[in-house]
């Protein structure tokens, strides 16, 4: 901690280099949380697209887990049910993977989601021009601003992705239960289920961070004069 009582005028030019402005990590977390809380509805909408895309990914993965679980029971009835419900199974297949069409649709939905996040975050940056400019006038460095935005997106991403992953898994399991009965749900391997949810959650977080990167960079590089010039 620097000595707060020292008067600025006693510090000479050579002292400047050592005396840097700081923003403690906990404080930035606090500020980001507050920004999310204040703009809760907007954050919710930004997060919503992520929730939907991630729950779709999770749904597809967990559905495959269910099918694999059913095959693993080696119960011919379940195998027949699967084939009847549209799974392409050869006589020797003991597992189902996601097919190309499924992968393609998932990737598309995730892409749309990223574009949505970039759009929403760019709007957020425009809305907060003045706030960012003021912070810069108070001595904030570029990376403080960058960090605030990335933390915010990280928190939104984590919350949205976990909700989405869980929702997708629950929906998929309910679906399996209704279509194939209790035995099918009971046969799902818990490890595979957790892995699927984990993958969906981390993909969601990653997408959220990817989406905020460019808007945050725009915010961080902004000159305070430009920010102040904006009429609001």
């Amino acid at each position: 901690m620097s000595d707060a009582s020292i008067l600025p005028e006693t510090v000479n030019a050579s002292g400047r280099v050592q005396r840097q402005v700081v923003l403690p990590f906990l404080k930035s977390v606090e500020i980001s949380l507050k920004s999310i809380k204040v703009r809760f509805f907007r954050s919710l909408i930004t997060t919503m697209s992520l929730v939907l895309a991630v729950s779709f990914l999770s749904f597809i993965n967990v559905s495959n887990d269910v099918a694999n679980g059913m095959l693993a029971t080696r119960n011919p009835d379940l195998r027949a049910t699967l084939i009847r419900s549209g799974y392409d199974l050869g006589p020797e297949d003991t597992s189902v993977g996601s097919n190309a069409k499924q992968r393609w649709i998932v990737i598309l939905s995730l892409l749309v989601c990223v574009v949505g996040i970039v759009n929403a975050q760019l709007m957020a940056v425009t809305e907060r021009f003045r706030e960012i400019g003021t912070m810069k006038c108070l001595g904030a460095l570029d990376r403080f601003v960058l960090r605030l935005f990335i933390l915010e997106a990280g928190m939104q991403g984590l919350a949205g992705a976990s909700v989405g992953a869980l929702a997708g898994a629950i929906f998929s399991l309910t679906n399996a239960w209704l279509r194939f009965g209790t035995e099918a749900v009971a046969s799902v391997s818990l490890t595979n289920l957790l892995i699927s949810i984990g993958i969906a959650t981390s993909v969601g977080c990653l997408l959220s961070l990817l989406g905020v990167f460019y808007p945050a960079l725009v915010a961080a590089r902004m000159q305070p004069v430009e920010a102040m010039r904006v009429e609001q």
Partner: peptide, 28 residues
């Protein structure tokens, strides 16, 4: 002659800004 860090330090410690539009950070 100051780099970005020194300029930020200058704004932070040496100069206090007051604006026509107050520029209080709304969320705080």
């Amino acid at each position: 002659q100051l780099d970005a860090y020194e300029l930020a330090w200058l704004r932070c410690r040496k100069i206090g800004y007051i604006f026509q539009t107050f520029n209080i950070i709304q969320v705080m």
